[in-house]
């Protein structure tokens, strides 16, 4: 019988440490599939963040680099400038990209670095035990917003993708979600597009992925997926932003 579906070569055959229902596993696979489809595995250099995906390099089967919390895009900028023939991406969570690393995010985008950014937005800090993220929704309860996020004292969910879209050097931004097979397929296309842009030297491309975190949302995996669909994607509308 002919094999028509298998694990991408860019994804190692090992169990991950992610919780049941977490979106990282799907996002890792989509990224690995895009790398395989574009035939760039031997040219790719990935930059892993600090956060739940800190050991993403244990799961990806290509060259990878660590970055201090928030500094992935500074690290990636240098790798790409030193080796323009390689394909360089960062994989960052909302705390990494939109809180501690906001400065690097804005300035790397503003320089129009020819990079691919995969931005996982799950509205929470997962690795450290469910604290408030810059993207936490108003009213959402976390370890550090136990009464729910209050706009008066904690401000509003930060729409970093919309902010970045204002910058002239940014070429492509799309927000996708993992809440249904249909949306997962759209996410796959967006990730591939963001790599294709880099291959064609088009410049800074970012895909924001709304991703469930059942453990720290206090939900079952089913409920978490439903929350992304019904609540989170209302605050963070899906589709092409730039």
């Amino acid at each position: 019988m002919k094999k028509i579906f298998s694990r991408p070569e860019s994804l190692r055959d090992v169990p991950t440490h992610y919780c049941p229902g977490c979106g990282h596993g799907i996002a890792h696979r989509l990224l690995a599939q895009a790398v395989d489809d574009l035939g760039i595995r031997e040219k790719v250099i990935g930059v892993a963040p600090v956060g739940c995906a800190v050991v993403a390099y244990d799961y990806w089967n290509f060259d990878c680099c660590e970055a201090a919390h928030g500094r992935a895009l500074a690290v990636a900028t240098a790798i790409k400038r030193v080796r323009p023939e390689n394909i360089v991406f960062t994989y960052q969570g909302d705390g990494d990209l939109a809180a501690i690393g906001t400065n690097e995010t804005i300035h790397t985008a503003n320089r129009g670095e020819n990079l691919t950014v995969i931005f996982i937005n799950n509205a929470i800090y997962g690795m450290t035990g469910g604290q408030m993220a810059p993207t936490t929704l108003l009213g959402q309860k976390t370890a550090t917003s136990p009464r729910g996020r209050n706009a008066d004292s904690e401000g509003y969910p930060l729409k970093i993708s919309e902010l970045l879209a204002q910058l002239p050097a940014v070429k492509y931004i799309e927000r996708v979600s993992l809440h249904s097979p249909q949306e997962v397929l759209k996410a796959q296309r967006a990730i591939k597009q963001a790599f294709q842009n880099q291959i064609e030297n088009k410049g800074f491309s970012l895909v924001e992925i709304l991703s469930p975190c059942p453990t720290y949302w206090g939900m079952s995996p089913d409920q978490a997926v439903e929350w992304v669909k019904e609540t989170m994607s209302k605050e963070f509308p899906l589709g092409r932003i730039k």
């Binding site: 970055a67 500094r71 500074a74 240098a78 400065n103």
Partner: peptide, 19 residues
Amino acid sequence: AESELAAINMVFGASAAGA
């Protein structure tokens, strides 16, 4: 760089890439 933090982490990336 946009900051000293970015500068030293750029050095990290450049060094990792062999420069």
